[in-house]
Amino acid sequence: MFFLETPPDTSQYMVAGYAISFGVMLIYVASLFIRYRNLNRDMSMLEEMDKDK
């Protein structure tokens, strides 16, 4: 088939797809990071309170 039409322009879908993949992964990693940081802060605060006692 020589006159096979050029593939339809679906690049917008591709961009959207990759944007969402990276967006969701980024949000997840950020949430891990933030939760970790908060836990660390709680931990050091509690350790200090424990020492005061």
């Binding site: 593939p7 679906t10 690049s11 879908y13 591709m14 797809g17 990759y18």
Partner: peptide, 21 residues
């Protein structure tokens, strides 16, 4: 996925989503 792999003939660029999918 985005540069190295060739563009699929029928579906076009959107097929690149397949690798991550």
């Amino acid at each position: 996925a985005l540069v190295f792999a060739p563009t699929e003939a029928v579906m076009g660029e959107v097929q690149r989503v397949f690798y991550f999918h």
